[in-house]
Amino acid sequence: MHTSVLRLADLGHSTIEPLLAHYGLSLVRVADGEAIPGSYWGDDEAGIIGHTVYARSDTPVHSLLHEAGHLIVLPPERRAQTHTDATDSIAEEDAVCYLQIVLGGTLPGVGRERVMHDMDAWGYTFRLGSARAWFEQDAENARNWLIERGLLTSGGEPV
């Protein structure tokens, strides 16, 4: 467990649910101590099945945003078939990392800086050494991938 990261309990569901609903997703809260359905990493990490993101109160917010990002980038027909593992390519994974940072910036009490800090604390690896350096200096392909699919505006804001 990574204690230095922001957890769902720190925000509450009412902060996350409207964001997920905007993309046609729902959040299911899993009881503390129970296994999280659809979790790729296990432990306290968020899970995905179909149009649903699963999380416990101890789930890191960055994990919830990342897994939701996987569902957001998928076309509806693939989203419905998704269970646990959603990535098709490195380009898609990069786009999801970029999107989770952008989405974190829309949440009160979170922000892009916190998401990037928590990504680094969790152990994401980027060739420039940090999530922030990658986001600011090396993520043009991920950003363009999202813009081309209508998920970000040309100004980099989520649609």
Rank of each mutant, 00 (worst) to 15 (best):
H117L: 13
R143V: 07
D43E: 15
H117C: 07
H22M: 11
L65E: 01
R56I: 03
D88M: 15
G50A: 01
A46H: 01
S154G: 11
E67R: 03
L65D: 02
I36R: 02
S14I: 11
M1E: 10
Y98H: 11
D32R: 13
S130Y: 08
T125G: 14
H83M: 10
G111D: 05
I90T: 08
M119W: 02
P37T: 02
V115A: 08
G109C: 12
E45V: 04
Q81T: 08
L25M: 08
W145Q: 05
P18D: 09
H51D: 15
P60W: 00
V110M: 06
L11Y: 00
A21G: 11
D138C: 06
L128N: 09
D94P: 06
Q137S: 12
R56Q: 04
W122M: 14
T82C: 15
L11Q: 01
H22V: 09
T15A: 12
Q137C: 11
M116S: 04
S57T: 05
S154H: 14
L27Y: 07
D43H: 11
L64Q: 01
M1H: 13
S39F: 02
P60R: 00
V53S: 00
A131F: 05
A95N: 05
I36E: 00
H22W: 11
A95E: 03
E136C: 12
G123Y: 07
T52R: 13
I147C: 05
T82N: 10
D118W: 03
A91N: 13
A35W: 04
W145D: 02
L71N: 03
I101M: 12
S89A: 09
T15Q: 11
P18R: 06
E157F: 10
V53D: 00
V102N: 06
S14M: 12
G38M: 03
V115T: 10
G155M: 13
L152W: 02
V159G: 13
E140F: 12
S14Q: 14
L27V: 11
A121K: 06
A68F: 00
H51M: 13
R56F: 02
T84S: 02
I90D: 15
D10N: 12
M119G: 09
A86R: 01
R7K: 14
G104D: 09
E140P: 13
A121G: 08
V102K: 06
E17H: 03
T125W: 14
V102W: 07
S130N: 03
A80R: 07
Y23M: 04
G42H: 08
L151N: 10
E92K: 06
M116N: 02
Q137T: 15
L65K: 02
S154W: 10
H62W: 10
G156E: 06
A131I: 03
D58H: 12
T3S: 10
R29I: 15
A142G: 09
D43N: 15
M1R: 12
M119P: 02
T84E: 03
N141R: 09
